[in-house]
């Protein structure tokens, strides 16, 4: 029986980063969905109901915080685990995100992809 893969939604406007992340998570046996901005991210989220979302903040059209907000207003979206993935080290934003109940707030440049995957997996195991 083919295993149901965990779905991960990656919302990131930098194409280079998005591609890498998508490649890595696919290798790690995730079903990957991509969105270049918050708007499409929302669509994707509602459409595919990922098991976890990696969310960038600074994005055009709709930024990460707004999407987070909107997501949390959705009955499904309320409970989906979200990891903010940003280079913006802004405590304010971090606090805000935490308020909206994101699992973690990672500075990209501090993290290896590997560790990222490990984190995601450990979260999904919970």
């Amino acid at each position: 029986m083919p295993k149901v893969l965990d779905k991960v939604l990656i919302v990131e406007d930098e194409q280079a980063l998005l591609a890498v992340l998508a490649k890595k998570f696919t290798i790690e046996k995730f079903k990957v969905f991509e969105a270049p901005n918050g708007q499409i991210g929302l669509e994707q989220a509602f459409q595919h109901h990922p098991d976890i979302i990696l969310l960038d903040i600074l994005m055009p059209i709709m930024d990460g915080m707004t999407m987070l907000n909107k997501l949390r207003q959705d009955p499904w979206g309320k409970s989906v685990p979200i990891i903010m993935l940003t280079n913006l080290s802004d405590e304010k934003k971090e606090a805000e995100a935490a308020k909206e109940g994101c699992y973690d707030y990672f500075i990209k440049s501090d993290w290896n992809i590997d560790d990222l995957v490990k984190k995601v997996k450990s979260k999904l195991k919970q």
Binding site: V20, L58, N87, L88, D90, S109, I113
Partner: peptide, 24 residues
């Protein structure tokens, strides 16, 4: 500074992760 650091970091992240992928 935030913006600048963010902007500076983004390419760095790209470098980091891609090199990581390379290593893999």
């Amino acid at each position: 500074i935030s913006f600048a650091s963010h902007q500076l970091r983004t390419p760095l992240t790209a470098i980091k992760w891609n090199t990581e992928m390379l290593r893999d």
